[in-house]
Design a protein around this nucleic acid. Structure first.
Ligand code: MN
Ligand code: MN
Ligand code: ZN
Ligand code: ZN
Lengths: 159, 159
DNA sequence: CCGTAAGCTGCAAAGCGTTTGCAGTATGAG
DNA sequence: CTCATACTGCAAACGCTTTGCAGCTTACGG
Protein backbone atom coordinates (compact mmCIF):
# COMPACT_ATOMS: atom_id res chain seq x y z
CA UNK A 1 0.00 0.00 0.00
CA UNK A 2 1.26 3.46 -0.78
CA UNK A 3 -1.39 6.11 -0.34
CA UNK A 4 -0.23 9.71 0.07
CA UNK A 5 -0.74 9.29 3.75
CA UNK A 6 1.54 6.31 4.08
CA UNK A 7 4.91 6.53 5.74
CA UNK A 8 6.97 5.18 2.86
CA UNK A 9 5.20 7.30 0.27
CA UNK A 10 5.79 10.54 2.10
CA UNK A 11 9.42 9.63 2.69
CA UNK A 12 9.87 8.77 -0.98
CA UNK A 13 8.17 12.03 -1.91
CA UNK A 14 10.60 14.00 0.22
CA UNK A 15 13.65 12.40 -1.41
CA UNK A 16 12.09 12.82 -4.80
CA UNK A 17 11.81 16.55 -4.42
CA UNK A 18 15.28 17.01 -3.04
CA UNK A 19 14.20 17.29 0.58
CA UNK A 20 16.26 15.54 3.22
CA UNK A 21 14.90 13.03 5.65
CA UNK A 22 15.85 14.46 9.01
CA UNK A 23 15.08 13.32 12.51
CA UNK A 24 12.55 16.09 13.16
CA UNK A 25 10.72 15.35 9.94
CA UNK A 26 10.59 11.63 10.64
CA UNK A 27 9.25 12.18 14.13
CA UNK A 28 6.66 14.70 13.04
CA UNK A 29 5.49 12.30 10.36
CA UNK A 30 5.19 9.54 12.95
CA UNK A 31 3.16 11.76 15.23
CA UNK A 32 0.78 12.54 12.37
CA UNK A 33 0.52 8.87 11.43
CA UNK A 34 -0.26 7.90 15.00
CA UNK A 35 -2.91 10.56 15.55
CA UNK A 36 -6.50 9.74 14.80
CA UNK A 37 -7.45 13.40 14.63
CA UNK A 38 -6.07 16.55 13.04
CA UNK A 39 -3.41 18.27 15.13
CA UNK A 40 -2.33 21.86 15.54
CA UNK A 41 1.34 22.83 15.27
CA UNK A 42 1.51 23.00 19.06
CA UNK A 43 -0.31 19.68 19.30
CA UNK A 44 2.26 17.99 17.10
CA UNK A 45 5.08 19.58 19.04
CA UNK A 46 3.67 18.41 22.36
CA UNK A 47 3.61 14.79 21.18
CA UNK A 48 7.15 14.65 19.86
CA UNK A 49 9.45 12.07 21.40
CA UNK A 50 12.46 14.31 21.32
CA UNK A 51 11.37 17.42 23.17
CA UNK A 52 14.42 19.33 21.94
CA UNK A 53 12.87 19.70 18.50
CA UNK A 54 11.91 23.30 18.07
CA UNK A 55 8.40 24.51 17.39
CA UNK A 56 9.79 26.45 14.44
CA UNK A 57 10.85 23.18 12.86
CA UNK A 58 7.34 21.85 13.27
CA UNK A 59 6.01 24.81 11.36
CA UNK A 60 8.66 24.41 8.68
CA UNK A 61 7.85 20.72 8.26
CA UNK A 62 4.14 21.40 8.09
CA UNK A 63 4.88 23.83 5.33
CA UNK A 64 6.98 21.28 3.43
CA UNK A 65 4.36 18.54 3.74
CA UNK A 66 1.62 20.88 2.55
CA UNK A 67 3.79 21.62 -0.47
CA UNK A 68 4.03 17.90 -1.19
CA UNK A 69 0.26 17.69 -0.79
CA UNK A 70 0.89 14.97 1.74
CA UNK A 71 -0.75 17.09 4.42
CA UNK A 72 -4.14 18.74 4.50
CA UNK A 73 -5.14 21.77 6.54
CA UNK A 74 -8.51 21.67 8.27
CA UNK A 75 -9.98 24.61 10.07
CA UNK A 76 -11.16 23.51 13.46
CA UNK A 77 -13.60 25.50 15.56
CA UNK A 78 -12.78 29.13 16.24
CA UNK A 79 -10.30 29.39 13.38
CA UNK A 80 -7.78 27.12 15.07
CA UNK A 81 -5.62 25.57 12.36
CA UNK A 82 -5.01 21.83 12.40
CA UNK A 83 -3.40 19.35 10.04
CA UNK A 84 -3.82 15.73 9.06
CA UNK A 85 -2.19 13.47 6.49
CA UNK A 86 -3.94 13.55 3.13
CA UNK A 87 -6.30 10.85 1.91
CA UNK A 88 -5.12 8.50 -0.86
CA UNK A 89 -5.52 9.66 -4.45
CA UNK A 90 -8.44 11.99 -5.13
CA UNK A 91 -10.33 10.74 -2.11
CA UNK A 92 -11.42 13.00 0.71
CA UNK A 93 -13.44 12.94 3.86
CA UNK A 94 -15.18 15.38 6.16
CA UNK A 95 -15.34 16.03 9.88
CA UNK A 96 -17.65 16.00 12.84
CA UNK A 97 -16.67 18.85 15.13
CA UNK A 98 -17.81 19.14 18.74
CA UNK A 99 -18.85 22.68 19.64
CA UNK A 100 -18.09 22.15 23.28
CA UNK A 101 -14.76 20.34 23.49
CA UNK A 102 -13.43 20.97 20.00
CA UNK A 103 -12.93 17.27 19.38
CA UNK A 104 -12.76 16.30 15.70
CA UNK A 105 -13.92 12.94 14.38
CA UNK A 106 -13.72 11.60 10.84
CA UNK A 107 -16.81 11.01 8.80
CA UNK A 108 -15.72 8.24 6.46
CA UNK A 109 -16.30 9.11 2.83
CA UNK A 110 -18.31 12.01 1.44
CA UNK A 111 -22.07 12.11 1.93
CA UNK A 112 -22.57 14.51 -0.96
CA UNK A 113 -23.65 12.15 -3.69
CA UNK A 114 -22.88 12.77 -7.34
CA UNK A 115 -26.43 13.89 -7.83
CA UNK A 116 -26.20 16.67 -5.26
CA UNK A 117 -22.80 17.83 -6.40
CA UNK A 118 -23.92 17.98 -10.01
CA UNK A 119 -27.03 19.92 -9.07
CA UNK A 120 -25.01 22.47 -7.14
CA UNK A 121 -22.53 22.78 -9.94
CA UNK A 122 -25.25 23.38 -12.48
CA UNK A 123 -26.97 25.91 -10.28
CA UNK A 124 -23.78 27.80 -9.62
CA UNK A 125 -22.63 27.71 -13.20
CA UNK A 126 -25.89 29.17 -14.44
CA UNK A 127 -26.25 32.16 -12.18
CA UNK A 128 -22.67 33.08 -11.40
CA UNK A 129 -19.66 32.06 -13.40
CA UNK A 130 -17.77 29.96 -10.86
CA UNK A 131 -15.97 26.66 -11.34
CA UNK A 132 -16.12 24.47 -8.24
CA UNK A 133 -12.92 22.50 -7.71
CA UNK A 134 -13.43 21.06 -4.27
CA UNK A 135 -15.67 21.36 -1.26
CA UNK A 136 -15.49 21.17 2.47
CA UNK A 137 -18.31 20.03 4.71
CA UNK A 138 -18.16 20.46 8.46
CA UNK A 139 -20.77 18.85 10.67
CA UNK A 140 -20.93 20.74 13.92
CA UNK A 141 -22.59 19.53 17.08
CA UNK A 142 -22.03 17.63 20.30
CA UNK A 143 -19.91 14.53 20.74
CA UNK A 144 -20.81 11.64 23.02
CA UNK A 145 -18.87 13.03 25.97
CA UNK A 146 -20.27 16.54 25.75
CA UNK A 147 -23.88 15.72 24.93
CA UNK A 148 -26.42 15.08 27.66
CA UNK A 149 -25.58 17.56 30.36
CA UNK A 150 -24.76 20.94 28.90
CA UNK A 151 -21.53 20.89 30.84
CA UNK A 152 -19.56 22.99 28.38
CA UNK A 153 -16.07 21.73 29.09
CA UNK A 154 -14.10 24.24 27.11
CA UNK A 155 -15.18 27.85 26.97
CA UNK A 156 -15.88 29.00 23.46
CA UNK A 157 -12.94 31.02 22.31
CA UNK A 158 -13.21 34.58 21.14
CA UNK A 159 -13.66 34.94 17.36
CA UNK B 1 -39.19 43.44 7.53
CA UNK B 2 -37.09 42.71 10.56
CA UNK B 3 -34.68 39.87 10.00
CA UNK B 4 -31.71 39.58 12.34
CA UNK B 5 -29.63 41.17 9.62
CA UNK B 6 -31.77 44.27 9.36
CA UNK B 7 -30.61 47.62 10.63
CA UNK B 8 -33.56 48.32 12.91
CA UNK B 9 -33.57 44.85 14.39
CA UNK B 10 -29.95 44.93 15.36
CA UNK B 11 -30.33 48.40 16.84
CA UNK B 12 -33.38 47.27 18.82
CA UNK B 13 -31.45 44.22 19.96
CA UNK B 14 -28.63 46.38 21.27
CA UNK B 15 -30.96 48.58 23.31
CA UNK B 16 -32.81 45.52 24.52
CA UNK B 17 -29.70 44.05 26.05
CA UNK B 18 -28.52 47.24 27.65
CA UNK B 19 -25.95 48.08 25.02
CA UNK B 20 -25.61 51.65 23.89
CA UNK B 21 -25.93 52.78 20.33
CA UNK B 22 -22.69 54.60 19.73
CA UNK B 23 -21.26 56.19 16.61
CA UNK B 24 -18.67 53.44 16.07
CA UNK B 25 -21.30 50.75 16.38
CA UNK B 26 -23.67 52.46 14.00
CA UNK B 27 -20.96 52.92 11.41
CA UNK B 28 -19.69 49.37 11.70
CA UNK B 29 -23.23 48.10 11.28
CA UNK B 30 -23.65 50.23 8.17
CA UNK B 31 -20.44 48.89 6.69
CA UNK B 32 -21.64 45.35 7.25
CA UNK B 33 -25.04 46.14 5.76
CA UNK B 34 -23.47 47.69 2.69
CA UNK B 35 -21.03 44.85 2.06
CA UNK B 36 -22.10 42.03 -0.20
CA UNK B 37 -19.38 39.76 1.15
CA UNK B 38 -18.02 38.77 4.56
CA UNK B 39 -15.42 41.20 5.91
CA UNK B 40 -12.43 40.81 8.19
CA UNK B 41 -11.95 43.12 11.15
CA UNK B 42 -9.37 45.05 9.16
CA UNK B 43 -11.71 45.09 6.16
CA UNK B 44 -14.47 46.66 8.22
CA UNK B 45 -12.06 49.18 9.69
CA UNK B 46 -10.78 50.19 6.27
CA UNK B 47 -14.29 50.99 5.06
CA UNK B 48 -15.33 53.13 8.01
CA UNK B 49 -16.34 56.71 7.24
CA UNK B 50 -14.76 58.10 10.35
CA UNK B 51 -11.18 56.93 10.17
CA UNK B 52 -10.56 57.92 13.81
CA UNK B 53 -12.50 54.88 15.01
CA UNK B 54 -10.01 52.49 16.49
CA UNK B 55 -9.46 48.97 15.28
CA UNK B 56 -9.93 47.80 18.86
CA UNK B 57 -13.46 49.15 18.78
CA UNK B 58 -14.13 47.18 15.63
CA UNK B 59 -13.09 44.01 17.43
CA UNK B 60 -15.18 44.90 20.45
CA UNK B 61 -18.23 45.55 18.30
CA UNK B 62 -17.74 42.31 16.39
CA UNK B 63 -17.70 40.56 19.73
CA UNK B 64 -20.92 42.25 20.84
CA UNK B 65 -22.74 41.47 17.60
CA UNK B 66 -21.66 37.83 17.75
CA UNK B 67 -23.09 37.73 21.25
CA UNK B 68 -26.40 39.03 19.94
CA UNK B 69 -26.22 36.39 17.21
CA UNK B 70 -26.67 39.20 14.74
CA UNK B 71 -23.29 38.43 13.23
CA UNK B 72 -21.90 35.19 11.89
CA UNK B 73 -18.25 34.22 11.58
CA UNK B 74 -17.21 32.52 8.38
CA UNK B 75 -13.79 31.05 7.90
CA UNK B 76 -12.40 32.27 4.63
CA UNK B 77 -9.51 30.60 2.88
CA UNK B 78 -6.32 30.09 4.86
CA UNK B 79 -7.97 30.57 8.23
CA UNK B 80 -8.64 34.26 7.67
CA UNK B 81 -11.60 35.23 9.83
CA UNK B 82 -14.44 37.19 8.29
CA UNK B 83 -17.87 38.26 9.43
CA UNK B 84 -21.28 38.87 7.89
CA UNK B 85 -24.69 39.76 9.25
CA UNK B 86 -26.75 36.71 10.16
CA UNK B 87 -29.55 35.33 8.00
CA UNK B 88 -33.14 35.78 9.19
CA UNK B 89 -34.54 33.23 11.63
CA UNK B 90 -33.13 29.72 11.36
CA UNK B 91 -32.11 30.24 7.75
CA UNK B 92 -28.55 29.92 6.56
CA UNK B 93 -26.52 29.97 3.39
CA UNK B 94 -23.13 28.81 2.19
CA UNK B 95 -20.25 30.29 0.25
CA UNK B 96 -18.33 30.00 -2.97
CA UNK B 97 -14.70 30.78 -2.25
CA UNK B 98 -12.14 31.58 -4.93
CA UNK B 99 -8.83 29.81 -4.34
CA UNK B 100 -6.92 32.43 -6.26
CA UNK B 101 -8.20 35.81 -5.16
CA UNK B 102 -10.00 34.85 -1.95
CA UNK B 103 -13.25 36.38 -3.13
CA UNK B 104 -16.36 35.06 -1.37
CA UNK B 105 -19.76 34.85 -3.04
CA UNK B 106 -23.05 33.77 -1.53
CA UNK B 107 -24.76 30.59 -2.60
CA UNK B 108 -28.43 31.35 -1.94
CA UNK B 109 -30.04 28.75 0.26
CA UNK B 110 -28.67 25.37 1.28
CA UNK B 111 -28.20 22.67 -1.37
CA UNK B 112 -28.22 19.89 1.21
CA UNK B 113 -31.75 18.64 0.93
CA UNK B 114 -33.62 17.15 3.86
CA UNK B 115 -33.00 13.72 2.43
CA UNK B 116 -29.24 14.11 2.46
CA UNK B 117 -29.13 15.67 5.89
CA UNK B 118 -31.29 12.95 7.37
CA UNK B 119 -29.14 10.25 5.80
CA UNK B 120 -25.98 11.77 7.23
CA UNK B 121 -27.58 12.15 10.60
CA UNK B 122 -28.68 8.56 10.66
CA UNK B 123 -25.30 7.31 9.53
CA UNK B 124 -23.48 9.34 12.15
CA UNK B 125 -25.85 8.47 14.94
CA UNK B 126 -25.49 4.77 14.29
CA UNK B 127 -21.73 4.42 14.21
CA UNK B 128 -20.62 7.18 16.51
CA UNK B 129 -22.71 8.91 19.08
CA UNK B 130 -22.74 12.47 17.78
CA UNK B 131 -25.61 14.95 17.56
CA UNK B 132 -25.32 17.26 14.56
CA UNK B 133 -26.55 20.76 15.31
CA UNK B 134 -25.46 22.68 12.28
CA UNK B 135 -23.28 22.35 9.24
CA UNK B 136 -21.01 24.42 7.07
CA UNK B 137 -20.41 23.82 3.40
CA UNK B 138 -17.69 25.63 1.51
CA UNK B 139 -17.46 25.38 -2.25
CA UNK B 140 -13.94 26.14 -3.31
CA UNK B 141 -12.81 26.90 -6.83
CA UNK B 142 -12.20 29.71 -9.29
CA UNK B 143 -14.34 32.81 -9.74
CA UNK B 144 -15.07 34.40 -13.10
CA UNK B 145 -12.14 36.80 -12.89
CA UNK B 146 -9.58 34.19 -11.90
CA UNK B 147 -10.69 31.33 -14.12
CA UNK B 148 -9.45 30.98 -17.69
CA UNK B 149 -5.81 31.98 -17.55
CA UNK B 150 -4.16 30.56 -14.47
CA UNK B 151 -3.05 34.06 -13.63
CA UNK B 152 -3.02 33.54 -9.88
CA UNK B 153 -3.65 37.11 -8.75
CA UNK B 154 -2.97 36.67 -5.08
CA UNK B 155 -0.31 34.31 -3.85
CA UNK B 156 -1.67 31.57 -1.67
CA UNK B 157 -1.00 32.53 1.90
CA UNK B 158 0.95 30.36 4.26
CA UNK B 159 -1.18 27.93 6.33
C1' DC C 1 34.21 4.71 4.38
C1' DC C 2 35.23 9.80 4.30
C1' DG C 3 34.91 14.68 2.62
C1' DT C 4 32.04 18.17 1.10
C1' DA C 5 28.18 21.26 -0.47
C1' DA C 6 24.02 22.61 0.77
C1' DG C 7 19.85 21.57 3.20
C1' DC C 8 18.19 21.82 7.86
C1' DT C 9 17.87 22.83 12.79
C1' DG C 10 17.71 25.35 17.24
C1' DC C 11 17.57 29.69 19.06
C1' DA C 12 16.14 34.22 19.57
C1' DA C 13 14.11 38.05 17.71
C1' DA C 14 10.71 39.99 14.78
C1' DG C 15 5.87 40.04 12.82
C1' DC C 16 1.04 40.34 12.98
C1' DG C 17 -3.58 39.98 14.13
C1' DT C 18 -6.17 40.30 18.36
C1' DT C 19 -7.00 41.51 23.19
C1' DT C 20 -6.82 44.37 27.33
C1' DG C 21 -5.92 48.18 31.03
C1' DC C 22 -6.74 52.77 31.61
C1' DA C 23 -8.28 57.46 31.80
C1' DG C 24 -11.27 60.39 29.59
C1' DT C 25 -15.91 60.79 26.77
C1' DA C 26 -20.59 60.12 25.38
C1' DT C 27 -24.99 57.81 26.04
C1' DG C 28 -29.50 57.38 27.75
C1' DA C 29 -32.51 57.10 31.88
C1' DG C 30 -34.66 59.88 35.16
C1' DC D 1 -30.21 68.75 32.59
C1' DT D 2 -27.71 65.65 35.57
C1' DC D 3 -25.44 61.64 36.54
C1' DA D 4 -23.94 56.79 36.59
C1' DT D 5 -21.66 54.01 33.78
C1' DA D 6 -21.05 51.89 29.24
C1' DC D 7 -17.95 52.83 25.77
C1' DT D 8 -13.91 54.72 23.19
C1' DG D 9 -9.08 55.74 21.69
C1' DC D 10 -4.59 54.74 22.76
C1' DA D 11 -0.79 52.01 23.73
C1' DA D 12 0.98 48.11 25.65
C1' DA D 13 0.49 43.20 26.10
C1' DC D 14 -0.43 38.74 23.91
C1' DG D 15 -0.13 34.36 21.48
C1' DC D 16 0.76 32.21 17.40
C1' DT D 17 3.69 32.08 13.34
C1' DT D 18 7.63 33.39 10.65
C1' DT D 19 12.48 34.55 9.83
C1' DG D 20 17.80 35.54 10.17
C1' DC D 21 21.69 33.33 11.43
C1' DA D 22 25.50 30.27 12.80
C1' DG D 23 26.39 25.70 13.43
C1' DC D 24 24.97 20.80 12.53
C1' DT D 25 23.37 16.87 9.31
C1' DT D 26 22.36 14.59 5.41
C1' DA D 27 23.10 12.73 1.01
C1' DC D 28 26.30 11.77 -2.40
C1' DG D 29 30.56 11.18 -5.04
C1' DG D 30 34.99 9.67 -4.65
MN1 MN E 1 -9.81 13.56 9.26
MN1 MN F 1 -22.68 35.20 2.86
ZN1 ZN G 1 -17.12 15.77 0.19
ZN1 ZN H 1 -26.62 24.17 4.64
Amino acid sequence: MSSPGSRTTVIALLADRGYRLTAPRRQILDVLLASGTPLSAAGIHRRLENRRINLASVYRTIWVLLGLEALRATDAIGGEKRFELADPLGAHHHHLICQDCGRIEDLEGCPLEERVLRAVNRRVRRSRRFRIVEHELRLIGACADCDGAGRRTRARRRP
